[in-house]
């Protein structure tokens, strides 16, 4: 039972403030969506939060989406305002090869756990975040489980983790390394498996 479209005023207001957003604008029955480049997120969200007519004061959600190894990451923010009867969704694109995006923790302290989770699950680095460490997996874990090229055990042979089951084990404490290159032991294991196959 969805509500009727109620986004007109918000769309006009947004285009008035940011004319360049028209390209990535999209509306749903109860959602207005804008797409931006990752670097703009803090500037845009600060205006959205502080402008008295927009007044999107509550960060409802911040999630990361992986659009596949050849595509991009997106960090998706959902905002709530008591002035507008629609959710505002901001999709910020992030380069997948070099996933960096400015942090939102200066605007909302509560973005901290969201960003830690995104870092843990997707490996997106939030520049300026004071506490960017793993939150769910243990600190020595090496993979990023929610990436699309991380496959679950049934398909583990195809995964970039190369058949090595993604478990917690003390291997290296270096978490600053974010590239997908495999550790030497893992490569050796993958080669051994490839040879074993006919």
């Amino acid at each position: 039972m969805t509500a009727p479209a109620k986004a007109g005023a918000l769309v006009r207001l947004l285009l008035d403030r940011f004319p360049d957003l028209a390209a990535g604008l999209w509306t749903d029955e109860d959602t207005v969506e804008v797409t931006i480049e990752g670097e703009r997120n803090v500037a845009l969200l600060q205006v959205l939060r502080d402008d008295p007519e927009l007044n999107f004061f509550f960060l409802a959600d911040a999630a990361a989406v992986d659009y596949g190894p050849t595509e991009r990451f997106e960090v998706v923010y959902h905002l709530y305002s008591d002035r507008h009867p629609a959710w505002l969704r901001v999709r910020a694109r992030v380069n997948r090869a070099d996933p960096h995006i400015p942090t939102l923790t200066d605007l909302w302290e509560g973005a901290m756990f969201h960003e830690r989770e995104m870092f843990d699950m997707m490996g997106i680095v939030f520049d300026g975040n004071r506490d960017l460490r793993r939150i769910y997996m243990s600190p020595d874990y090496r993979s990023f489980p929610q990436r699309k090229d991380f496959l679950l055990p049934d398909d583990a042979a195809d995964s970039s983790a190369a058949g090595v089951r993604p478990l917690e084990r003390p291997e290296t404490w270096d978490l600053t390394r974010l590239s997908d290159e495999l550790a030497p032991g893992v490569v050796a294991h993958a080669e051994a498996e490839a040879e074993a196959k006919p």
Partner: peptide
């Protein structure tokens, strides 16, 4: 894409 939020006993629970 769809976003749905509800009021759970602990607060805003949403699904994207």
């Amino acid at each position: 894409r769809a976003y749905a939020a509800i009021e759970s006993p602990r607060g805003l629970y949403s699904v994207y």
